[in-house]
């Protein structure tokens, strides 16, 4: 464990909690892409099946359980409890255009052609594009609630911190995983436009609205 990975995990946890609290407190999921949240639930489910097969640490296990629990709780709030506030018209990204190519790529490009490894690879590739429906929805509505931008900032920051973690681990532990790194770079690059708007607008107290 290093400081980049720890702050990355905490940033990820913060994002998940911010979103859950936003929906729960405001009793509304306006502006939130349910499709992205379903993709994140799939990402955690396919990545953390090793909860059943191997134990790494209390931290590792508890974080995985928290991530999976919060992901499904968020999907439940969006599609069941507060479904009246779900903005399906603007959440129109065709996720099949993400899941199918990512599934094919996971079967073709992986470290080991085994069930758990292919699922893990699928999860890594899917996570890198899972935020697209959310970013697409913001571009369609033309704006985002400030709390939602804080959620997105923490979520984007987490994988950027993981990139620093991988540099650290390559240098100090001569460990690196090319699949995770390439997907992590793609994932972080997808946030660049948002990061620019967040830093130039939201941090100056303005509302995030598009076109910029």
């Amino acid at each position: 464990m290093n400081v980049f990975r720890l702050t990355g995990d905490l940033s990820h946890l913060a994002a998940i909690i911010i979103l859950l609290l936003k929906i729960w407190k405001s009793r509304s999921c306006a502006g939130i892409s349910g499709k992205s949240q379903i993709l994140f639930a799939i990402v955690f489910t396919t990545r953390y099946l090793d909860l059943l097969t191997s134990f790494i640490s209390i931290y590792n296990t508890s974080m995985k359980v928290i991530y999976i629990g919060c992901a499904y709780a968020t999907v439940y709030l969006i599609y069941m409890k507060f479904r009246a506030t779900y903005d399906g018209n603007h959440d129109s990204f065709r996720v099949e255009f993400l899941v199918v190519p990512v599934g094919g790529l996971a079967v073709l490009v992986n470290h080991d052609f085994s069930f758990l490894e292919i699922l893990w690879t699928f999860s890594i590739y899917l996570e890198s594009v899972a935020i697209l429906p959310q970013l697409f929805m913001i571009s369609k509505t033309g704006e985002a609630e400030t709390i939602t931008t804080h959620y997105l900032f923490c979520l984007g920051l987490y994988r950027a911190l993981y990139l620093l973690n991988w540099i650290w681990r390559f240098y100090f532990e001569s460990f690196f995983d090319m699949i995770a790194i390439v997907a992590g770079v793609v994932q972080t690059v997808l946030y660049c436009d948002f990061f620019y708007l967040y830093i130039t607008k939201v941090l100056k107290g303005k509302k995030l609205s598009l076109p910029a």
């Binding site: 990975r5 990820h12 790494i56 995985k64 991530y67 470290h111 080991d112 460990f175 690196f176």
Partner: peptide
């Protein structure tokens, strides 16, 4: 190793 398999990351 360079591409060690242990999955200790979240």
């Amino acid at each position: 190793g360079i591409d060690s398999k242990h999955k200790d990351e979240l």
